[in-house]
Amino acid sequence: MKRVVFSLLILIGLGMALSAQTSIFDRNCVSCHRREGVSLRRTFMNALLIYSGEQNMKAGLKYFLRHPSKETSVMGEEYFRTHRLKAPTTLTDSELDAALDTYWQRYKVIGNLR
């Protein structure tokens, strides 16, 4: 009985941890992009055109999220005629890393071609 309760607790803990990680991305990125009407897929493909590799892209996006500017944005000049520049992120380093990991995993090309 004790073993069953212990296993359930671990599973619940893991589930919560996973949902917490996902929710960082969903809460802070998806909701905002949805509000602004900007496709996360589009930004990802734009970022891929510039940064190519996973680590390079994560580092580039992380810098942009901390210090947003039109010059370092992956969106073109056209975009800023209709959209404002986002405010710097308030997420911690580990939260930002977790959000970017989710972003990469959700939209990556590697493993999704046939």
């Binding site: 940064y51 190519s52 590799g53 996973e54 680590q55 390079n56 090309v109 590697i110 999704n112 071609l113 046939r114």
Partner: peptide, 22 residues
């Protein structure tokens, strides 16, 4: 999602970090 193929050659794409994409 279908990677483009050509009967005249085979191909591969790698990212900046030398990781194979396809």
């Amino acid at each position: 999602r279908t990677y483009p193929r050509d009967p005249r050659f085979r191909s591969a794409i790698y990212d900046l970090e030398h990781v194979q994409i396809f």
